[in-house]
Computed example of a mutant assay.
Amino acid sequence: MGTAKAWLVVNARSGSNSAAARDALERSLAAHGLTPERTIEFPDEDLPTAASLREAGVARLIVFTGDGSLNAAIKAVAGWDGELLVLPGGTMNLLSARLHGAETGYEEILDCIHRGAYRPVRPVMACCDAGCAHAGLLVGPGTAWAEVREAMRDFDIPGLARGTGEALAEMTGGARVRMVDPLIGHEDGYPLLELTPSHRGLQVEGYRPEGPGDFLQQGWAMLRRRFREGPHERLGLYDRLVIENCAGEPLELLLDGEPARLGSKAEFSVEECPVDLLATAHGF
């Protein structure tokens, strides 16, 4: 489908969406014979839907955003019979790494697409009543660090200082979360549980810093979305699990970096992606 009719979705707030980066991407798309017919500036413009793509005869949607906007784009086109090409347009690009390899830039990805060296896949997602995550789902008071990361991105110095203190307070004193079905891990819970979807199920990691140094190390890891650089333990692989708040409070979540909230106990499971994604990595 090298000459398939395509639309492009971008987001100026995403980590790699500078004007220069956008210009370079457009040149690369043209060089590979993949020039999109239309560019959608999300969130200023609405995301395309399965119906709008079918009506316009679009066969491929190219998404150059961060993981949060990408999550929203996939949800918007659920049930569409076309194909979605993920390009690394954000800060961490976790789903792009899953599909194409952690160190793969868009030039190499586009070269593979141009040569036909790819395949459509429907990788599993981590799902709950609040939504689904393609790259990762976080549960617990440690998710408060997301607001600090937003302040860093917006160069909001007062917000950064205020948010850092609040995030540390939440991580050290907030109500912890624990797995109850299956009953695995520490009974008094964790400040943060991470659920990472893979073809083997949900990989669950528990983050349990103990002293001040551990909390600062974990906070710094959270800000860079490199959670596993902080103190943690692997709790296993599951197709389904139940997590509860140890104090009966609502569960705070991050779905691909976007905040959400559930009741004090919730079920998490795996589901298949609702649209074909193009993969170029050997893992698929």
Rank of each mutant, 00 (worst) to 15 (best):
D129Y: 11
P123L: 09
H114N: 13
L216C: 13
H232G: 06
E267Q: 12
L223V: 08
S52H: 01
F215W: 06
V275E: 02
L192C: 13
E170K: 04
A126W: 03
A144W: 02
G219P: 11
R208S: 13
I40T: 03
F215H: 12
F284Q: 01
D156F: 06
C246K: 10
F268R: 00
M1F: 12
A281C: 12
G57Y: 09
G116V: 11
S28T: 13
E233V: 13
D81C: 06
P182K: 01
C112G: 11
L137S: 12
D214M: 05
N93S: 07
L87K: 01
R225M: 15
E55G: 03
C128E: 09
V242I: 15
G263L: 07
M92L: 12
G185T: 11
V148D: 05
S69T: 15
L278S: 03
L99E: 02
S269Y: 15
M125C: 15
E147P: 11
E267L: 12
P274M: 07
F215L: 09
G159V: 00
Y238C: 01
L53G: 05
V63I: 13
R176K: 13
A117R: 10
I109G: 07
A102C: 09
D44E: 13
T91Y: 04
I62T: 07
V180H: 11
L94K: 04
E249A: 13
E108K: 00
R153K: 08
G57A: 10
R27D: 12
W80S: 07
C132I: 15
L241D: 06
R224V: 06
L192Q: 09
E166W: 00
L195A: 14
L110F: 14
P141C: 13
N245I: 12
M92Y: 06
A279K: 01
E41K: 01
L183V: 10
L94P: 08
G219S: 11
A221G: 09
L110N: 05
A175S: 14
T65E: 01
A76W: 06
